[in-house]
Structure formats: C-alpha cells, structure tokens
Amino acid sequence: MATTQTSSGRLAIAAQTRDGRGKGPARQLRRAGQIPATLYGAGGAPVALAVDPKTVSRVLHSVSGHNTIFELRIEGGENTAAMIVDWQLEPLKGGLLHVDLKRIAMDRLLKLRVPVQTQGEAVGVKTQGGILELITREVEIECLPGDIPEFLTVDVSGLSIGQSFRISELKADAKVRILTDADRVIAHIIAVKEVVETPAAEAAAATPAEPEVIKKGKAETVEAEGEAKTEGKEAKKEKK
C-alpha cells in the first residue's frame, strides 16, 4: 500500500523520484500504473516524482479534498508535508494524468481555494418556485496550514427570487482572510422562465435561411484584381 497513517494522524503518501522527462517517459510511467508528479514550494528545489494515482485520487475525494495536508515520503529523499495544488484528468474516463504537489511550511501563510457549501432551503425555491444557482463554487482564502477550513458555509435560507448572496456576506473564521472580490456573487435565486413553444413552421420562418457573410476586404481585393487584369489586357493590345 502506498498510503499509511502517521503518528500525528496525517495521511502518508509514498513517492519515487524519476529521471525521465517528456511525454515518452510519462506514458511509460502511466502504463506501469503510476503517474508523474512534481513537488515544489517553500523555498525548496522542484523535484520530479512518480506517485500512485489511486492514493492521490483518494485524497481528492476525501472530505477536505485537494486542501488535505499529507506527509509525502520520497524514497531515499525528504519527508515533507505537502498538498495537491493542481491536477490533470483524462477527458473521457476521468483518470489522473499528472499532479502538482506543494511543500507546506506550517508556519507560513498559505493561499488556497476552499469550496462553498450551501445551508438551508431558500424561500425563493421553497415557496416561489425559483432555482438556486451556485455561481462561485470555490473561494480563495489566506490562512495558516493548521487553520484550513474544509468548506465555507453559505446560509441561503433567507434568499427569495432575485436576491443574491455575495462574498462580503460570508462569515469566515477570524484566522481566515478571504481574498476573492467582496462583490462577487456566490449564489442567487433565479425565476424559471415559462417556455412558450412556437410551432415548427413559425420558428422556421423566424430564423433566417443563411447567415450574413463577412465580405469586407475580400470584395475590394476582388474588384482591384479585376481592374488590374483589364488594365494589363489593354496594355497588351496597345503593344500589338
């Protein structure tokens, strides 16, 4: 198993250093059941690593998600606290392709994105038949690694149709500083539009048959070319 639990209760992930760079060695690594990763940050030199995608996936799907601080144990190298800062997924099956890991200095402030979780059922949804639309799903914060919240709670129960909940209304812990723009909307209640279905014939008549073709420039050049050709022919006739 590539994951163990440390004495402090923190998850430990095993990693190996890798020498190969580029897509060829990366593909070989993926065929062997591992994925390329890179470790950087906290003033240290960047290190190219190979990790087990299953353990990384387990961290990503945990309660604290990508903000989980775990212990990275590099074979024959350093043991450091780390966090996932970025990851690439295969578009079809959703498997992990690459991970960016960041060294964590426990005494230094950290910038990270924390998910937003809604609480309660909005008045606009319950009684007015609206839809709660979550616009901002993650908020950027700054805090010490020990104070990272799992999520920020947004109480939407008081919202009715047309009302919104902004970043400035968020109640976060005193140890956490919110960096996202205070005016940004987190969630709002929208009214459901009544769709009036027009008959197919009417709809077809309303839409133009063909879009407008952008002719600017091309038409002028065609005309200019035409003029030049006629001038050339006239000159030839005169010579004869």
């Binding site: 077809a204 839409t207 879009p211 407008e212 073709v213």
Partner: peptide
C-alpha cells in the same frame, strides 16, 4: 434552430 449570425465563408 442554432446557427451563427455572421460567417466568413
């Protein structure tokens, strides 16, 4: 039906 408003070609 969806279609572009303007096209180059």
């Amino acid at each position: 039906m969806l279609m572009p408003k303007k096209v180059k070609f």
